[in-house]
Amino acid sequence: MNRLSGLRVWVTRPVAQAEALCEAIEAAGGHALRQALLAIEPPTDPVRADRDLTSAAEAEDLIFTSANAVAGAWHIQPDFRPTGALTAVGAATAAALRHAARREVLAPAADTTSEGLLALPRFAQPTGQRVAIIGGEGGRQTLADTLAQRGAEVSKVAVYRRQPVTPSRPRLQALVAEADVIVVTSGEALAHLAAITPPALWPDLRGRQLVVPSERVLKRAQDLGFNTMPLRPPRMDDAAILETLARCPAAGHGIGRGSA
């Protein structure tokens, strides 16, 4: 089925997470433009990460913020066996965590964001609970701050870091010229795209359809002046992104912009 016939999609995911989505786009008749805006690398201080992870294994609750967090934790400690309850922010993270831990995982059913996780009954009154948040260096503080305000004893464990990837200016120009849609899977990736786009290229970039992961990133795109309302999949897994891409006006009409 060529649901995406002619649709040219720039996938900005880190390389390790991008290929399955790119292959699904091409199987549906679209054309995937592969260019990451972020790279996933080991944490700055792996010794500290190993120590913090050992401590986190005994927490009452362990929250994993991304599939990268799952991969990073088990890369640092292949025999990692946490004893506490396991929670994942989204469906893809939950699937990765179930596979790695071989245990049941709690995850929000609909709102696959930090806010959705905070709405779970388990975290309504976490007074006295020891909660370890496993994620990357930096990132949002909403989850940790809110849980601490609710009385939890919160620690953060950084098991990877995100590094910006900056394509050459000719490559960036070619990508913007060719893409009908840009899939941006994090606020950090959108911020980096905005930072590296020269003023002369902004009118073209603002004309592209965005697919974004959350209401927060959607609002940021609107603040940046994108002309078309960004699309937000119900989940940021490949199937949901593909369904969202099929709703793009250019999908199925054989529209292209040349080649990058």
Rank of each mutant, 00 (worst) to 15 (best):
L97I: 01
R102P: 00
A124H: 14
I133H: 04
R103F: 05
A101K: 07
G135I: 06
A109R: 13
R103P: 08
L106E: 03
V105A: 04
I133G: 00
T112N: 10
A109N: 11
A110D: 14
F123I: 01
E104A: 14
G138F: 03
D111G: 09
I133T: 02
T142R: 11
T127Q: 12
T113V: 10
G135T: 06
E104V: 11
E115I: 10
I133C: 00
T142P: 00
Q125E: 12
V131C: 04
R102L: 00
T127C: 05
P108I: 02
E104N: 07
E115W: 10
D145S: 14
L120Q: 12
P108H: 09
E104P: 08
A109C: 07
Q129H: 09
G138D: 06
F123R: 01
A100Q: 02
A132P: 02
G136F: 06
H99I: 00
L143V: 11
P108W: 07
R98S: 00
F123D: 06
A100H: 01
A124C: 11
I134A: 03
G136M: 08
Q125L: 03
D145R: 13
P126K: 03
R122N: 03
D111E: 15
T142W: 07
Q125I: 01
A110F: 12
R122T: 05
E115Q: 15
G116P: 14
T127H: 08
R102G: 07
A144H: 09
S114G: 15
T127F: 01
P126M: 09
E137T: 12
I134F: 06
L120V: 11
A124I: 07
G116M: 06
A132Q: 02
G116C: 10
D111K: 12
A101V: 11
G139L: 04
T113R: 15
A124T: 13
A101D: 04
A109Q: 15
P121Q: 11
A119N: 13
S114V: 12
T112Y: 09
Q129Y: 02
V105N: 03
G135A: 05
P121D: 13
T127A: 10
A144G: 14
R140G: 09
A124L: 10
Q129M: 08
G128T: 04
E115Y: 13
T142S: 07
A110C: 06
G136Q: 10
L143K: 13
E104H: 09
T142N: 06
I133E: 02
R103C: 08
R130E: 12
E115A: 15
S114I: 10
R102C: 01
Q125Y: 06
Q125W: 05
R140Q: 14
R102K: 07
A119I: 05
R102I: 00
A100Y: 01
R140N: 10
L143A: 10
D111I: 08
R140T: 08
